[in-house]
């Protein structure tokens, strides 16, 4: 079937089997291999992309369901220069092998937007925002992204350094 995807503000017209996930369409058919396939079951978060500004697991969605949506992958987070989050990951050493990093970056980008919109989390004392990006809030809100190298101290420091400025 024909599917039109808009990825990082560029249009792609693809002829795909209905079974192709959004992640496989991005990686295998468009050739943007930044988004990673980790577990392929929505548990690790390595495939996280932004759809219409919201973070989702690209492995648990069909490409056909995103005809016309605005998709942003890690390749679209920067425009020539690194985004503040990307720069912070380098400064704070937020990775070892790097496999989870694209998902961490997209997820953190979406998460910071959610916090700026005043969304509560499981660990929030009150359901009335606004919320500060405490260590507990950050860990809870990023629990959908695993790092097998366990670089969480660096990842958290990087995200907090950007979140506190936002």
């Amino acid at each position: 079937m024909q599917i039109d995807l808009t990825i990082n503000q560029k249009s792609y017209s693809l002829e795909l089997d209905s079974r192709v996930t959004l992640l496989d369409a991005i990686r295998e058919h468009v050739g943007l291999t930044g988004s990673k396939k980790g577990c392929d079951h929505g548990q690790c978060g390595a495939c996280t992309v932004l759809v219409n500004g919201r973070r989702i697991n690209a492995c648990l969605s069909l490409a056909a369901m995103h005809d016309g949506d605005e998709i942003t992958t890690v390749e679209g987070l920067s425009d020539g220069e690194l985004s503040p989050l990307q720069a912070a990951f380098i400064k704070e050493d937020g990775f070892q092998c790097g496999y989870c990093t694209p998902g961490q970056l997209c997820s953190a980008t979406g998460m910071l937007q959610e916090i700026s919109e005043g969304w509560p989390s499981h660990v929030s004392d009150s359901l009335d925002g606004p919320y500060e990006l405490s260590e507990a809030e950050l860990s809870e809100r990023m629990s959908g992204n695993l790092c097998r190298c366990s670089c969480y101290p660096g990842i958290n420091a990087a995200i907090r350094s950007v979140g506190e400025k936002a």
Binding site: G42, G45, I56, N57, L60, S124, R141
Partner: peptide, 11 residues
């Protein structure tokens, strides 16, 4: 808020 992850709740 006690269920799943941020990415899953968005979908």
């Amino acid at each position: 808020l006690a269920g799943a992850s941020g990415q899953l709740r968005n979908k």
